Amino acid sequence: MLIPVLSLGLCIGAASVKAEETLDQQLEQPTDADHPSSGPWNVTLGLGAGYAPRFEGAKRYHFTPIPYGSVSYSGLGSIGPEGLGANIVKSGGFRAGLLVGYTSGRDENDDPHLQGLGNISGSLQMGGYAAYQWQGFEVRTKVLQAVTHSGNGLVGSVGVTYALHPATDWMVKVGPQLSFADSDHMKRYFGVTGTQSRNSGLSTYTANGGLNDISVGANATYQISPHWLLFGIAKVSELVGDAADSPIVQDKGQVFTGAGLAYHF
């Protein structure tokens, strides 16, 4: 779910790379309910290492840092790698609110296959989310629109997670997710213009908006002590629709794994 003590949290959020941003942050990051606190502040800070595709659709992988954690106060909102979230509506198991986040874009030097396509600038995003919890299940959707470098477009997701406790010190969250984007985002990340085609050697391609990713992920945490915990993350996804047909995509199937250590207080 979200980011560390204001300026620190925003730095961690901005450091997130595109490979991690394709993960469902709700599945990847802790929530207040995961690790309750006795006071109004609920803080979890951690860092790990992941093995991820160099870009969406890449066949090459690399190791990359994983920021993990959230800072929240009295259930009013939180800040973490997903961005800043403010709870506007809370009623029973339902909540909804506003999100402010950041996407890091893409650099043509990230992978030889991207040479000639040019860079995609990072952008500030604004949007909202809604979620409903029932017993161990949670259904969540979010939508974010780029407000700087607005040509990066709109992205969103709909997912379901189920939390279970196989042992006292263990918690596991698993679930599927659907990701979608508008035509601006799809053209920016998966389209190839005439100029890009001449520079890269890839065929020209126009990508339209719609569903672009189907995935299943899992997040497991192990409580080492009252404050320290280990976390592990895994996700398998498949690019679909116009994203899957793009000449930029080398492999429709994508895998992400990672693990790390966090401190809760």
Rank of each mutant, 00 (worst) to 15 (best):
T22A: 12
A15N: 07
K18V: 05
A14S: 15
A33N: 08
A15F: 02
L10W: 09
S7T: 04
G13V: 04
I12C: 11
C11W: 09
D24G: 12
A14M: 10
L23E: 09
Q25S: 11
L8W: 05
Q29M: 13
L6S: 12
G13K: 11
V17E: 13
V17H: 03
L6Y: 09
L27M: 11
T22F: 08
C11M: 11
A19G: 06
D24N: 15
P4M: 09
P4I: 03
L6D: 12
T22R: 14
L8S: 11
L10R: 14
Q26N: 14
K18C: 02
P30D: 01
E21H: 05
L10E: 09
D24C: 09
V5S: 12
E20H: 07
T31C: 03
V17I: 02
T31Y: 01
D32S: 12
K18R: 15
E20I: 10
S16F: 00
G9F: 03
E28A: 14
Q29N: 14
G13E: 15
S16V: 11
L10V: 14
K18P: 01
L8Q: 10
V5C: 06
L8C: 05
C11E: 14
C11V: 10
L8E: 12
T31W: 01
S16R: 10
E28M: 13
Q29D: 10
V17Q: 11
A33F: 05
D32V: 07
A15E: 07
D34A: 05
I12L: 12
E21Y: 02
P30I: 01
I12K: 09
S16N: 06
L27V: 14
S16Q: 14
L8M: 13
